[in-house]
């Protein structure tokens, strides 16, 4: 168990770095937004993994749940609350980014970063 104790965090880092790589290496703006989404979801998994308690259950109080004295029976609800907020805010920012992309496409006729830059240099 000890060897795999950090497995979740490592996968989270792999996902995070994949998203980061998409954002900084790809010129297509829509691809960048998808990369940001990957990054964001990896962050969610990081928080939720930290909230998990071995042998615990979802934090919904059940009357008469057999819970030994002093043991933790419910997973931590706080990361869940934070991430609920983060998901909704994330979609709001994604929507704003996509609206910007639509406007950029209308103004420049392309969503590729290098083409936009060369048009800027010309003018």
């Amino acid at each position: 168990m000890e060897v795999f104790g950090l497995y979740n965090y490592w996968i989270v880092i792999v996902l995070m770095m994949t998203g980061f790589y998409v954002v900084i290496s790809r010129g297509n703006l829509i691809k960048k937004i998808v990369g940001l989404n990957i990054f964001q979801t990896s962050m969610f998994i990081l928080y939720i993994s930290m909230g998990k308690v071995r042998g615990g259950t979802a934090p919904i109080i059940v009357e008469g749940l057999a819970c030994p004295e002093g043991a933790v029976c419910y997973s931590n609800p706080l990361p869940h609350v934070l991430i609920l907020t983060a998901i909704v805010v994330g979609v709001a920012t994604t929507a704003l980014g996509l609206a910007l992309i639509v406007r950029i496409k209308e103004a420049y006729g392309t969503v590729e970063e290098d083409e936009i830059q060369s048009q800027e240099v010309e003018t």
Partner: peptide, 11 residues
């Protein structure tokens, strides 16, 4: 599977 059912709905 990580016990975060509310988060799963929202996601």
């Amino acid at each position: 599977t990580l016990d975060a059912v509310d988060v799963a709905f929202t996601e």
